[in-house]
Deep mutational scan, measured.
Amino acid sequence: ENVVSAPMPGKVLRVLVRVGDRVRVGQGLLVLEAMKMENEIPSPRDGVVKRILVKEGEIVDTGQPKIELG
């Protein structure tokens, strides 16, 4: 899985990584606000952040790609 998608609709509060960052499985990639709760979205695997496809403040839909890992 190279693309991390939104598990639920919500607002991107914070992006916790930058392009080029090495990430580990379970590491937080971003914080999504859904139903007035903050949810940290974890990396599904070890890898390197290739692209960030969302911006802080953006509203995302379920299944929308957010971060691409290499």
Score class of each variant (00 low, 15 high):
Glu1Gly: 13
Glu1Lys: 12
Glu1Phe: 13
Glu1His: 13
Glu1Asp: 13
Glu1Leu: 14
Glu1Thr: 14
Glu1Asn: 14
Asn2Val: 14
Asn2Ala: 11
Val3Arg: 06
Val3Ala: 07
Val3Trp: 15
Val3Asp: 04
Val4Trp: 04
Val4Gln: 04
Val4Asn: 03
Val4Cys: 09
Val4His: 04
Ser5Arg: 15
Ser5Trp: 11
Ser5Asp: 06
Ser5Tyr: 15
Ala6Arg: 03
Ala6Lys: 04
Ala6Ile: 09
Ala6Ser: 13
Ala6Glu: 04
Ala6Trp: 07
Ala6Asn: 03
Ala6Met: 12
Pro7Met: 12
Pro7Asp: 10
Pro7Cys: 12
Met8Val: 09
Met8Asn: 07
Met8Gly: 08
Met8Lys: 06
Met8Ile: 09
Met8Ala: 08
Pro9Ser: 11
Gly10Cys: 10
Gly10Trp: 09
Gly10Leu: 05
Gly10Asn: 02
Lys11Asp: 00
Lys11Pro: 00
Lys11Ala: 04
Lys11Trp: 08
Lys11Cys: 09
Val12Cys: 07
Val12Glu: 00
Val12Thr: 02
Leu13Val: 11
Leu13Pro: 00
Arg14Phe: 05
Arg14Thr: 04
Arg14Trp: 05
Arg14His: 06
Arg14Cys: 09
Arg14Asn: 03
Arg14Gln: 06
Arg14Glu: 04
Arg14Ser: 05
Val15Leu: 13
Val15Gln: 00
Val15Asp: 00
Val15Cys: 08
Val15Ala: 00
Val15His: 01
Val15Tyr: 05
Leu16Phe: 05
Leu16Cys: 10
Leu16Asn: 03
Leu16Tyr: 05
Leu16Met: 09
Leu16Glu: 00
Leu16Trp: 01
Leu16Asp: 00
Val17Ala: 02
Val17Cys: 08
Arg18Pro: 00
Arg18Phe: 07
Arg18Ala: 11
Val19Pro: 07
Val19Asp: 02
Val19His: 04
Val19Tyr: 03
Val19Glu: 09
Val19Leu: 08
Val19Ile: 10
Gly20Tyr: 06
Gly20Trp: 06
Gly20Met: 07
Gly20Thr: 03
Gly20Leu: 06
Asp21Cys: 10
Asp21Leu: 09
Asp21Ser: 08
Asp21Pro: 01
Arg22Phe: 14
Arg22Trp: 14
Arg22Ile: 13
Val23Gln: 01
Val23Arg: 02
Val23Asp: 01
Val23Trp: 04
Val23Cys: 06
Arg24Pro: 01
Arg24Tyr: 13
Arg24Ala: 10
Arg24Ser: 11
Arg24Lys: 13
Arg24Gln: 11
Val25Asp: 04
Val25Trp: 10
Val25Pro: 07
Val25Cys: 12
Val25Gln: 13
Gly26Glu: 03
Gly26Asp: 04
Gly26Thr: 03
Gly26Ser: 05
Gly26Met: 06
Gln27Val: 05
Gln27Asn: 03
Gln27Trp: 05
Gln27Asp: 09
Gln27Glu: 07
Gln27Cys: 06
Gly28Cys: 15
Gly28Phe: 10
Gly28Ala: 14
Gly28Tyr: 09
Gly28Met: 12
Gly28Val: 15
Gly28Ile: 15
Leu29Trp: 01
Leu29Phe: 02
Leu29Glu: 00
Leu29Met: 06
Leu29Asp: 00
Leu29Gly: 00
Leu30Gln: 00
Leu30Ile: 12
Leu30Met: 09
Leu30Ser: 01
Leu30Ala: 04
Val31Gly: 00
Val31Glu: 00
Val31Arg: 03
Val31Trp: 05
Leu32Asp: 00
Leu32Cys: 08
Leu32His: 00
Leu32Pro: 00
Leu32Ile: 14
Leu32Thr: 01
Leu32Ala: 00
Glu33Asn: 05
Glu33His: 08
Glu33Phe: 14
Glu33Tyr: 15
Glu33Trp: 15
Ala34Tyr: 15
Ala34Met: 11
Ala34Trp: 15
Ala34Phe: 15
Ala34Gly: 09
Ala34Pro: 01
Ala34Cys: 14
Met35Gln: 12
Met35Asn: 15
Lys36His: 14
Lys36Gly: 15
Lys36Thr: 11
Lys36Cys: 15
Lys36Ala: 13
Lys36Asp: 15
Lys36Glu: 14
Met37Asp: 07
Met37Phe: 09
Met37Val: 12
Met37Trp: 08
Met37Gln: 13
Met37Ile: 12
Glu38Tyr: 10
Glu38Gln: 11
Glu38Val: 11
Glu38Ser: 09
Asn39Cys: 15
Glu40Phe: 12
Glu40Asn: 08
Glu40Pro: 07
Glu40Val: 15
Glu40Ile: 15
Glu40Trp: 12
Glu40His: 10
Ile41Tyr: 05
Ile41Asn: 01
Ile41Lys: 00
Pro42Phe: 12
Pro42Gly: 10
Pro42Arg: 14
Ser43Lys: 01
Ser43Arg: 01
Ser43Trp: 02
Ser43Pro: 02
Ser43Glu: 03
Ser43His: 02
Ser43Gly: 02
Pro44Gln: 05
Pro44Tyr: 04
Pro44Ile: 05
Pro44Arg: 04
Pro44Leu: 05
Pro44Cys: 06
Arg45Ser: 10
Arg45Ile: 15
Arg45Phe: 13
Arg45Glu: 05
Asp46Glu: 10
Asp46Gln: 07
Asp46Met: 08
Asp46Pro: 07
Asp46Trp: 08
Gly47Thr: 03
Gly47Val: 03
Gly47Trp: 05
Gly47Pro: 01
Gly47Gln: 02
Gly47Phe: 04
Val48Gln: 07
Val48Gly: 02
Val48Phe: 13
Val48Ile: 13
Val48Glu: 06
Val48Pro: 02
Val48Asp: 03
Val49Pro: 01
Val49Arg: 01
Val49Asp: 01
Lys50Arg: 12
Lys50Met: 13
Lys50Val: 14
Lys50Ser: 10
Arg51Thr: 09
Arg51Pro: 03
Arg51Tyr: 08
Arg51Cys: 10
Ile52Gly: 02
Ile52Gln: 01
Ile52Tyr: 03
Ile52Asp: 01
Ile52Ala: 02
Leu53Asn: 04
Leu53Val: 04
Leu53Gln: 02
Leu53Lys: 03
Leu53Arg: 04
Val54Asp: 01
Val54Leu: 02
Val54Ile: 10
Val54Asn: 01
Val54Tyr: 03
Lys55Met: 11
Lys55Tyr: 12
Lys55Thr: 11
Lys55Leu: 10
Glu56Leu: 10
Glu56Gly: 05
Gly57Lys: 03
Gly57Asn: 08
Gly57Ser: 04
Gly57Trp: 05
Gly57Arg: 03
Glu58Val: 05
Glu58Ala: 08
Glu58Met: 10
Glu58Asp: 15
Glu58Arg: 02
Glu58Lys: 03
Ile59Asn: 11
Ile59Cys: 13
Ile59His: 12
Ile59Phe: 14
Ile59Trp: 15
Val60Pro: 02
Val60Phe: 04
Val60Gln: 03
Val60Asn: 02
Val60Leu: 06
Val60His: 02
Val60Ala: 03
Val60Ser: 03
Asp61Phe: 14
Asp61Lys: 15
Asp61Ser: 14
Asp61Ile: 14
Asp61Glu: 14
Asp61Leu: 13
Asp61Gln: 14
Thr62Asn: 08
Thr62Ile: 13
Thr62Asp: 07
Gly63Ile: 04
Gly63Val: 04
Gly63Trp: 09
Gly63Phe: 08
Gly63Arg: 07
Gly63Ala: 08
Gln64Leu: 05
Gln64Phe: 06
Gln64Lys: 06
Gln64Cys: 07
Pro65Trp: 10
Pro65Thr: 08
Pro65Phe: 08
Lys66Glu: 15
Ile67Asp: 02
Ile67Ser: 03
Ile67His: 02
Glu68Lys: 06
Glu68Ile: 15
Glu68Thr: 11
Leu69Cys: 04
Leu69Met: 06
Leu69Pro: 01
Leu69Arg: 02
Gly70Asn: 12
Gly70Gln: 13
Gly70Leu: 13
